[in-house]
């Protein structure tokens, strides 16, 4: 096992997949000669050249649509959104064309593209650069979306996404790019639709995804040490497809659920998770399901306020204690 950053893990996945399949290419703003705005693609252009690692102009709608069209003829483009927030200018391409072409053609085609890039707040950049649109993506049947919380998952999910024959969004996180985790040297894949139990516990379940899963894990450790509460932490990893079984088994075991995500609460991913739990594990619940989400306002710029707006350990602990009260 090697201790590598989340950024390095994604780069390894891209590098290995470019080498494995001649149809895999990566395109986006600054991905090639500049080495990536967040250095995720650093060195890949030098190694693989112009054909496989392609700088685009600032034209998300054009290069997203181009990637979709190319995928219809067997190219497997990975497109980088410098920020997932920028995908909003390509919504028609991504949410109409990538998601629905297969359906509207009665299954005559498929769109094997990956849309990847950071989707997170907490970086002091204001509302336009802080979106977490996994809920919007998941609301479009035809699209898939994953949110890796650590380097191991980032690499394994990225490889699975590239090999998948449907459009997959990989939601990364700039605050995780520099964090390190153990990652095996040998090749592995993390399948879509399989959640990960980060920590076992008996008193309550925290269900989370992305960086919030890591915050939840920290909070769970504090809850155990300071409050003597045994918390199970489920990291969804994949939002659509969704591992309902792991969610339900955990809640059935503990009887209590706290849902933690960086999304705004209204129609967030956890609104759906909450519904699934009440529908399928109602009789096992010992109390209402609680949620910790971003405080429901556009992302604020001021750093101390933004740090409070998105979930943090303190807010998660407060939420957990509410669940148990």
């Amino acid at each position: 096992m090697a201790l590598i950053t989340y950024r390095e893990a994604i780069k390894q996945a891209l590098d290995e997949e470019i080498q494995r399949d001649e149809n895999v290419c990566i395109m986006g703003e600054e991905v090639a000669q500049y080495n990536g705005a967040y250095k995720v693609t650093e060195g890949l252009w030098e190694k693989h050249g112009d054909k496989r690692v392609i700088d685009t102009p600032i034209s998300e709608a054009a290069f997203s649509g181009l990637a979709i069209g190319a995928s219809m003829l067997g190219v497997r483009p990975v497109i980088e959104m410098m920020f997932m927030s920028f995908s909003y200018v390509a919504i028609d391409q991504l949410f109409n064309n990538a998601s629905f072409c297969r359906y509207m053609s009665g299954g005559l085609m498929n769109v094997p593209i990956v849309v990847r890039g950071p989707a997170n707040g907490g970086t002091n950049v204001g509302a336009t650069h802080s979106h977490t649109p996994e809920n919007m993506v998941a609301n479009h049947p035809g699209l898939k979306v994953v949110c890796p919380s650590n380097a191991y998952d980032a690499k394994g999910l990225m490889k699975a996404a590239i090999r998948d024959n449907d459009p997959v969004f990989v939601m990364e996180n700039t605050l995780l790019y520099g964090e390190k985790w153990e990652v095996p040297e040998e090749e592995y894949i993390v399948e879509l639709g399989v959640a990960n139990i980060l920590k076992e516990g008996t008193d309550m379940t925290i269900i989370s995804h992305g960086r919030c899963a890591m915050l939840s894990l920290q909070a769970a450790k504090t809850l155990e040490e300071k409050h003597g509460i045994s918390v199970e932490v489920v990291d969804l990893r994949s939002i659509r497809p969704l591992d309902e079984e792991t969610i339900l088994n955990s809640v059935k075991k503990t009887g209590r659920a706290l849902l933690v995500e960086e999304n705004k609460p209204y129609c967030g991913v956890d609104a759906q998770i909450s519904h699934i739990i009440q529908l399928k594990a109602f009789d096992y619940l010992d109390g209402p399901i609680h949620r910790v989400s971003a405080i429901d306002a556009p992302q604020i710029y001021a750093k101390p306020l933004e740090d409070w707006q998105i979930p943090n350990e303190e807010r998660i602990i407060t939420g957990a204690l509410k669940c148990l009260s």
Binding site: A70, G74, M109
Partner: peptide, 20 residues
Amino acid sequence: WGGHGIVAGQTPLGAGLAFA
């Protein structure tokens, strides 16, 4: 390759076919 409902939405797809 279609048959697309949104005005101009098919134009980058056409570029993508040619790119491929």
